[in-house]
């Protein structure tokens, strides 16, 4: 099973409607993506927690339909 950049973006936006998202298809195989996500909802959260928030937004697809989603997450710079 694979995914598209749009599907990933839609899933993340569903949970984080105000997030700024950039998605890179690392290998063009629909299985390895990188995503940068910036949202106020990450403020005060550790990096592990921020990534777990994204994994939850992805509904358990990371590690299954998606082999890898390399994440770079942060709250907006003030």
């Amino acid at each position: 099973m694979t995914m598209t950049s749009n599907e990933i973006e839609e899933l993340i936006l569903k949970s984080f409607p105000n997030a700024k998202i950039t998605i890179d298809d690392l290998r063009g195989d629909g299985d390895h993506f990188a995503a940068q996500v910036v949202t106020e909802e990450f403020r005060g959260k550790s990096r592990v927690q921020q990534h777990q928030m994204i994994y939850n937004a992805m509904g358990g697809r990371v590690g299954k339909e998606l082999h890898a989603l390399a994440l770079n997450t942060s709250a907006p710079k003030d």
């Binding site: 990188a34 990096r47 592990v48 990534h51 777990q52 994994y55 358990g60 990371v62 590690g63 299954k64 890898a68 390399a70 994440l71 770079n72």
Partner: peptide, 23 residues
């Protein structure tokens, strides 16, 4: 509560997977 491998633990604490360790 982390969906992928690898996972790094240091002194009983989960530090992260590949993207976090690299960063």
């Amino acid at each position: 509560d982390w969906p992928t491998i690898p996972q790094l633990y240091v002194k009983n604490e989960f530090v992260g997977g590949c993207d976090i360790i690299r960063e």
